[in-house]
């Protein structure tokens, strides 16, 4: 298993008056090269689970192993280093920086890795061509269409060739055509061996034939119908 969670719980502000239990006893395994959808309504805990898988923070209790590395009690700095090497993120609304150019946005994850400008440009151009947006390379990201923005976000998640792609409600602000296009790209990535976890409550996503498994989350627990 590339992603293995066992008895994972997450409590925000533990011991304080505003304590919130976001996840309870989550057991989840994701095999390499598979595509899993985390389904559930807003506030069900999908993003929290995605954040744990994405090494943004460790679980409060339970075991979480991502790419053979145990996350529990791992200091923040090592979580970041592990995330850099392992995880590519696609955000809701794609979260690009609108004043930066498309090329600059795509290469952002490479800056703290000390990758030289020439190498950065080379890697970005390869992805720009793959997603047919090379003509937009020098455009500010705030001035391109929604479909192009989506491809910029995917290219940024792939720039460091990480084995795992996490997408958080990627189609929430897309029309049907762009949502379908997004899933087609995910399918292509799956075919190249990437492991993909998508948090979404969009039927276009969880009913897509490329999805290997759908996990329903309700009130912080895995819901078995």
């Amino acid at each position: 298993m590339l992603i293995e969670l066992s008895g994972v719980s997450k409590i925000y502000n533990q011991g304080r008056a505003n304590e919130v239990r976001a996840l309870t006893d989550i057991d989840l395994g994701v095999e390499q090269g598979s595509m899993v959808c985390l389904k559930g309504p807003s506030g069900s805990g999908k993003s929290t689970l995605l954040a744990i898988i994405g090494c943004i923070f460790p679980p409060t209790s339970g075991k979480a192993a991502i790419a053979e590395r145990q996350l529990a009690r791992l200091p923040d700095r090592f979580l970041t280093l592990h995330r850099r090497e392992t995880i590519g993120f696609i955000f809701q609304r794609f979260n690009v920086l609108p004043e930066l150019t498309v090329l600059e946005n795509i290469t952002l994850p490479l800056l703290p890795l000390g990758v030289a400008p020439k190498e950065r440009k080379l890697r970005a151009q390869e992805l720009l061509e793959r997603f047919s947006i090379s003509h937009r390379a020098q455009f500010p990201a705030g001035q391109i269409s929604g479909g192009e923005l989506q491809r910029v976000a995917i290219a940024r998640a792939l720039i460091n060739n990480q084995p795992i792609i996490l997408a958080d409600e990627p189609t929430a602000h897309l029309d049907t055509t762009l949502s379908r296009e997004f899933m087609e790209i995910m399918q292509q990535l799956k075919a190249t061996g990437k492991t993909i976890v998508i948090a979404s409550h969009d039927p276009l996503v969880f009913e897509h034939p490329a999805i290997d498994r759908t996990v329903t989350i309700k009130d912080g627990r895995i819901h078995v119908p």
Binding site: G54, I56, T80, L81, F89, P109, P112, R156
Partner: peptide
């Protein structure tokens, strides 16, 4: 928002 995005993309606090 910019700081949060950078951190998710692998930037450390020190960066």
């Amino acid at each position: 928002r910019e700081i949060a995005i950078l951190k998710v993309l692998g930037w450390e606090t020190s960066d």
